[in-house]
Design a protein around this nucleic acid. Structure first.
Lengths: 217, 217
DNA sequence: TGGATAAAATACAATAATGTTTGTTTTAAT
DNA sequence: ATTAAAACAAACATTATTGTATTTTATCCA
């Protein structure tokens, strides 16, 4: 029988330290990378003793696995904040300006601290079954909620969902690629050119698809 | 005074073991990831004693740093093989088929063993100064040679270099993004749709740019 | 052929990382 | 107020990892 969880001093304290640990782990991924992250470093970063930390998490794996969920949630928040803001400034229309704002928001998202931290875990998941096991469903949930967000915030694309999805994928993949490549080079690529092309492509696809619909009526 | 290097039994032996070590390191990055790679594991993979290994490399850093150059070279070879083959089959024209072949070749490249291994180092370089230090110039060299390759193998784009470069970047970023995202999901994204869009975009840009040139004459 | 050098293996020492155990302080509950 | 339990800290034991030193084996060259 699971005990009813009450809002008590201890449960609150426990929650805050749990979050402090996950935030410390995040900071470690960002500052020293997943490869160099150890329980000792995380504990130091969290300003906590290792013993205390291991009271809340059974072992290292538990911390890492928990941080997958934590970072997924944080990334969703970040995504929401950035894109809602861009959307508010852009209005509901599909224009060059609104698409540029969307791309810039996505760019910020892919360079945000939580996403950078998450990238470390994505790479780690490839060779760590226990991470992959929780990351795959987490990513599915992430995709689902992003899709919902787009559906409700980009009503202009209603009726052309297929094209919307393809453009969304293109944008996500391209920007993820840019963000990733920037790790191996110090020279800034000519982002502006690329962004213009992405805008142009979306406008073309949108025009084509909506024209098809009008034609069909 | 540097001694003239002669082709002797020992020098050959030394070269082959050096390569064996770098190949073993590569295999470790692929199989267990950079984060879990240790000198012991590399030595095991190379079927060599740690002592013997450390005779050829001063320390772990030396192995990792050397593998940046090794993998850059291997990736260039891989790229050449895949794209020359695609190009041979496609002929020199800018058509839907030839672009599809190029994309498929790029897709293979971004999923090849050497590139997967290199990805691990890209991520490691973000938080490891000694790797970044050699990776940045290596990446520059890589970019330069890829650019040369494209220039000589895609003569149809002569005169529209600006567009060619932008499309190239789009293709590289998008496919790197696809390859990277595939690490966090097991479900295969609808690649076909995306590839069609990439082909379409290139054809549009090519048509626009060449039309501009004809118009100018 | 024999001393010198290169390549490789083995053995050793020092450190770092993990997990566990034990102890201490603080809150909860009767 | 006293016992129980939660949150945290400190100390301990074990293993993993690295780097070095020593030893062995094979090749080079005078």
């Amino acid at each position: 029988m699971k005990q009813e969880k009450r809002e008590t001093w201890q449960s609150r304290k426990s929650d805050t330290t749990r979050i402090a640990v996950l935030e410390a782990a995040t900071q470690c991924y960002i500052k020293i990378g997943y490869a160099n992250t150890t329980v000792t470093k995380i504990a130091e970063e969290a300003q906590l003793s290792r013993g205390a930390m291991m009271y809340h998490f059974d072992d290292v794996q538990a911390i890492i696995v928990a941080s997958v969920g934590y970072l997924t949630e944080k990334r969703l928040q970040e995504y929401g904040t950035l894109l809602v803001k861009a959307e508010r400034e852009a209005g509901g229309r599909v224009t060059e300006e609104s698409l540029e704002m969307t791309i810039n928001a996505l760019w910020k998202f892919f360079h945000s601290r939580y996403h950078i931290a998450y990238q470390e875990l994505i790479v780690a998941a490839r060779t760590d079954e226990s991470i992959a096991k929780v990351m795959h469903p987490a990513q599915q949930e992430f995709d689902k909620r992003i899709a919902e967000h787009i559906r409700s915030h980009f009503p202009a694309w209603q009726g052309v969902e297929e094209v919307r999805e393809t453009i969304t994928e293109l944008y996500f993949y391209a920007l993820q690629g840019v963000s990733f490549f920037s790790l191996s080079t110090n020279k800034q690529p000519k982002i502006k050119r690329l962004f213009s092309l992405l805008v142009k492509t979306a406008l073309n696809e949108y025009a084509d698809a909506t024209a098809d619909i009008k034609e069909a009526n």
